[in-house]
Amino acid sequence: MPARATRMDAVGTETAFEVLAQVKRLGATGRKVYNFAIGEPDFDTPDSIKQAGIAAIRENHTHYSPSAGIAPLREAIARHAGRLRGLSLSPDEVVVTPGAKPIIYYTLLACVDPGDEVIYPNPGFPIYESAIRLAGAVPVPVYLREERGFAFDPAELAERITDRTRLVILNSPHNPTGGVLGADVLSEVARLAIEHDLWVLSDEIYSRIVFDRPFSSIASLPGMRERTVILDGFSKTYAMTGWRLGYGIMPVPIAEAVARLVTNVESCTATFTQMAGVAALEGSQEPVREMVAEFAARRDLVVGLLNEVPGVRVGVPAGAFYVFPNVTEACRRVGAPDARTFASRLLEEAGVAVLARTAFGTPAPDEDQQFVRLSYAASREQLREGILRMRRWVERGGRA
């Protein structure tokens, strides 16, 4: 068989899906497994959205559509996304894609040349680094540290900027920590972006899932709209992960370039899925409010329960549906050398699935603490029972 292309060596993966396969394997043996590893709302897509999708199929919205997306959806996105961010947006600035991930790749292809440097958060969504490398660019991490509440550090960002830096990736609310960037951090990042003439890719996929403060976008700051690509979508807000419906908001010349990339790769996003997206935006937002309120209650529950586990400490995240506890002492208690071993044994021995910090990038050279990510996209009962299992496992020194 001929050798595969060497570029595949740069393509990473999402450990969450690998752990999901392990969860299913254990479940097939009859074991009860509590899965806190996958980043997916456990709610069903609201009925009104499902009915809109079904109606669209019945009405034969099953043909090609414009590569940038159908006009009704782009108009709805411009209205609703603009209202959330205090911006007056044009549909011409919107490109619809099958899921939000393509916006990461297409932004890099449209804005970054091979050899350029791209700064990204670490820990962070693992596809950032994978996409940067696949685009032929150089990934440059800014490390998010516990003592700063895992906030993006503008001082470290300034140190990382060189004459080869082309783009900065932000993610707020943040995966995996649940952190939300404050106005002071956003303002300083904006200042640096303008000073050094940089693009910003702002991943705002969790923009509607915030608890303690209003959502803020860097694109709303003076001088930033013309250099920012906003990534957002329907998967998290409307529990539509399997529908594959996302979008980017960007300056028109970049939107035209990204639409051309869509033409080359997938032609368009499924038309009936886009019709469901219109219904999601234009219909009642009460299901979203109810989901976010439930996530807030679960957050408080999980933080309290985890801080009762020996050797575990965690702060209170401000958004998304993740917690990122420090398990350094818990690792010592169970005889695990690192969080990866801790997570693997926790699954095999206690039936609780979490993700190690290494699933979100290589730690900083001076990072000597161990972390795991838990998703609280699970029922309160499951969260109580799963974390109780974790607590008992740690208390027993890791014995099953």
Score class of each variant (00 low, 15 high):
residue 328 T to W: 08
residue 180 V to Y: 08
residue 40 E to R: 14
residue 334 V to H: 09
residue 42 D to Y: 15
residue 378 A to E: 14
residue 224 M to P: 08
residue 393 W to L: 02
residue 28 A to F: 02
residue 372 V to L: 07
residue 296 A to L: 10
residue 55 A to V: 05
residue 6 T to R: 13
residue 34 Y to E: 03
residue 123 P to E: 03
residue 309 V to W: 00
residue 68 A to M: 13
residue 146 E to C: 05
residue 124 G to S: 04
residue 146 E to V: 01
residue 28 A to W: 02
residue 141 P to D: 03
residue 39 G to D: 11
residue 35 N to P: 01
residue 369 Q to S: 13
residue 333 R to K: 12
residue 255 A to I: 00
residue 47 D to V: 12
residue 159 E to L: 13
residue 168 V to G: 01
residue 195 E to P: 14
residue 219 A to Q: 10
residue 308 E to K: 13
residue 393 W to T: 03
residue 13 T to E: 08
residue 201 L to S: 01
residue 196 H to F: 09
residue 70 I to H: 09
residue 317 P to H: 04
residue 72 P to G: 07
residue 391 R to T: 14
residue 135 A to F: 01
residue 378 A to D: 08
residue 8 M to V: 07
residue 90 S to F: 02
residue 268 C to L: 03
residue 206 Y to K: 05
residue 191 R to A: 15
residue 68 A to G: 13
residue 179 G to M: 10
residue 63 H to C: 11
residue 53 G to A: 13
residue 186 L to E: 05
residue 366 D to K: 07
residue 287 P to H: 09
residue 392 R to S: 15
residue 106 Y to R: 12
residue 235 S to Q: 08
residue 297 A to I: 03
residue 190 A to L: 12
residue 15 T to K: 09
residue 221 L to S: 13
residue 189 V to I: 15
residue 294 E to D: 15
residue 197 D to M: 11
residue 331 C to L: 02
residue 184 D to A: 15
residue 245 L to C: 00
residue 153 D to Y: 06
residue 46 P to V: 03
residue 45 T to F: 06
residue 142 V to M: 01
residue 370 Q to G: 02
residue 98 P to Q: 12
residue 283 G to L: 01
residue 91 P to W: 05
residue 340 R to A: 09
residue 371 F to Q: 00
residue 42 D to E: 11
residue 183 A to T: 12
residue 63 H to R: 15
residue 245 L to W: 00
residue 262 V to C: 10
residue 115 G to I: 00
residue 284 S to I: 03
residue 279 A to G: 07
residue 82 G to F: 04
residue 256 E to N: 13
residue 85 R to C: 14
residue 307 N to V: 06
residue 261 L to A: 02
residue 398 G to H: 10
residue 154 P to L: 05
residue 58 R to V: 06
residue 303 V to T: 10
residue 267 S to K: 15
residue 341 T to F: 11
residue 54 I to M: 10
residue 103 I to K: 03
residue 85 R to G: 06
residue 326 N to E: 15
residue 51 Q to D: 12
residue 359 A to Y: 11
residue 93 E to V: 00
residue 299 R to W: 11
residue 97 T to Y: 06
residue 76 A to W: 03
residue 204 E to F: 00
residue 337 P to T: 06
residue 214 P to Q: 07
residue 55 A to N: 13
residue 378 A to C: 07
residue 273 T to H: 12
residue 339 A to Y: 09
residue 242 G to E: 11
residue 398 G to M: 05
residue 128 Y to F: 15
residue 299 R to N: 06
residue 246 G to W: 12
residue 264 N to M: 13
residue 320 A to L: 01
residue 352 V to Q: 13
